[in-house]
């Protein structure tokens, strides 16, 4: 028969002791249990375009119904709706990385007309503060060159592509990068498709250990992202120190579930 201590708990492993303590003493508030943690996700340009197609109703659903259905599910879970309406039940926030913003901007730095409505209403612009830009660029360049040294994100002429910078930026901010590009996510035709993600995580862990703590984000496809949100452990800590103060405020309001539903997004697309 197992021995009991003074509080009446069986002298088992600490795990069992903690579980019993948790069940007995932590109040089971239903609202606390039902609130899902908000996950910040960086979108690749191709995904943003597909989302606009889904919203406009012009998506070629018959070609790949599973993919567009998964995108629709993800859009429904977004914290910001079509006309920037705040969705309290939403648990996903879409973020615009600096290099993805460059891809979707014209020469004057303004988002292209066809993408403007979606980006301004449903995404958060992660513009880096001017005082940190040089430092940020150096870190992203260093990360990107480490990926390329291992042979990832290289173009036809064996030179680095913009994809390496996008993955580096997402890694730096600790955001899951959502993409359908086989160069960014796992390529199913590879002999060992998980090797790429493993190598990226290893480089990130080594290079970014001083920036933040906790589980590392990685590039994912839509189906894999939804599985992670429902059953997995999404990365919870975002590295937001280099962002503009307005953007940090918006992120804080979202995380504390106190974003005013009537207010216009102030941390949205920044001009220039």
């Amino acid at each position: 028969m197992s021995k009991k201590n003074k509080q009446g708990f069986l002298k088992n492993t600490n795990k069992h002791k903690k579980e019993r303590f948790r069940l007995k003493y932590i109040p089971t508030d239903k609202t606390y249990q039902n609130k899902r943690h908000t996950t910040f996700i960086a979108l690749d340009a191709c995904i943003a375009i597909d989302m606009v197609k889904v919203i406009n109703g012009t998506a070629p659903i018959k070609n790949s119904p599973k993919y567009y259905y998964a995108l629709k599910k993800l859009l429904d879970r977004s914290v910001f709706g079509k006309n920037h309406l705040y969705n309290k039940k939403g648990d996903v926030v879409f973020c615009l990385l600096p290099h993805v913003k460059k891809e979707l901007s014209n020469s004057e730095g303004e988002i292209f007309e066809s993408m403007k409505k979606f980006v301004e209403n449903q995404m958060i612009d992660l513009t880096v503060d001017v005082s940190y830009q040089i430092n940020f660029s150096k870190k992203v360049d260093r990360l990107s060159s480490q990926y390329c040294d291992l042979g990832y994100f290289i173009g036809k002429d064996f030179s680095p592509t913009v994809d390496s910078l996008i993955v580096a930026e997402a890694s730096f901010f600790n955001l899951t990068l959502l993409s359908r590009d086989k160069h960014i996510c796992t390529d199913f035709h590879d002999k060992n498709p998980e090797r790429k993600i493993f190598d990226i995580r290893r480089i990130n862990r080594k290079s970014l250990c001083n920036c933040f703590d906790g589980p590392q984000a990685e590039p994912r496809r839509v189906e894999s992202l939804l599985k992670m949100l429902d059953y997995g452990n999404p990365p919870k800590i975002m590295n937001e120190d280099y962002l503009l103060s307005e953007t940090q405020k918006v992120i804080w309001l979202i995380n504390t579930n106190s974003y005013p539903s009537y207010a216009k997004l102030t941390g949205g697309v920044q001009k220039g």
Binding site: C46, I49, K53, N56, T58, E103, S114, G155, P160, V162
Partner: peptide, 17 residues
């Protein structure tokens, strides 16, 4: 057209690279 937009975006990515 968003399909053409996407194709142009791929070319733009190569230019940026």
């Amino acid at each position: 057209d968003l399909d053409i937009f996407e194709k142009l975006l791929n070319v733009k990515k190569q230019i940026m690279s």
